[in-house]
């Protein structure tokens, strides 16, 4: 059959729209996973035993099973309990929660490694435990985990391709749709891969900038 890229310009707008979706989904899920990660970390460390232990069990299950399987659970599970969310929202929630669990592990370690004196000093100065966590301990912990968390965000970009399976029209599904019309899988999947690669390089560039900033501010 050979390769023929002459059809690329005609369908480029569909692919570019898919790109925009992929970037939007990645950013939304990244924000969800960041704040979700902080909340999960606080629950896993400080919630009462009856909440903490089941919560840890669920987190452990989410880390030991494939994201694709979890996406099916969330998408079809929500429909079953009568919540009919658009696929794109289900995709963002699925990706966001999955990575929130991974971020939470990093943030827990970081919270525990913040010097105890910080908490004690804040408490002595009259802050409540919650305030001390929110205003003193967590900001320091978060700074420490930004490099590993940014790695997770880059992984999230690549895993966002999986939401194509539940029908979200991002880059991968857009390529698939174009292929349905053109019967040119090699060309258009390669094009999609190229776009992912460029977004990935851009994210790595931002990551390096942020890391340099953090290392200077210390």
């Amino acid at each position: 059959m050979g390769l023929d890229f002459s059809m690329v310009p005609k369908y480029l707008d569909i692919i570019l729209l898919g790109c925009a979706y992929t970037i939007g989904i990645t950013v939304a899920a990244a924000i969800l996973s960041f704040f979700g990660g902080i909340v999960f970390a606080v629950i896993a460390l400080y919630a009462p035993w009856v909440i903490r232990q089941p919560f840890r069990l669920v987190a452990w299950i989410f880390m030991g099973t494939p994201l694709l399987l979890q996406l099916f659970l969330i998408y079809f599970g929500l429909v079953q309990v009568g919540i009919d969310l658009p696929a794109v929202v289900a995709g963002i929630i699925g990706l966001g929660l999955h990575f929130a669990v991974y971020n939470s592990e990093l943030i827990q370690t970081a919270i525990l490694s913040v010097d105890k004196g910080q908490m004690e000093a804040a408490r002595t100065l009259g802050l409540s435990r919650g305030e001390a966590l929110r205003k003193v301990v967590i900001p320091q912990a978060v700074r420490d985990v930004i490099p590993p968390i940014s790695n997770n965000m880059i992984a999230l970009l690549k895993d966002s391709a999986l939401v194509s399976v539940i029908g979200v029209s991002e880059l991968t599904l857009s390529a698939q749709r174009v292929i349905g019309k053109t019967y040119r899988p090699f060309e258009f999947y390669l094009l999609a891969a190229a776009f992912y690669y460029v977004i990935n390089l851009a994210m790595e560039w931002v990551q390096r900038k942020i890391e340099r900033r953090i290392s200077i501010s210390r």
Binding site: D159, T172, A175, Q176, I179, Y189, L190, Y196, L201
Partner: peptide
Amino acid sequence: GTPALIQLFILYFGGPQI
């Protein structure tokens, strides 16, 4: 730097073209 899913698709669906 690219999704494993896309790599699989290139190989499985695009492979026959090459």
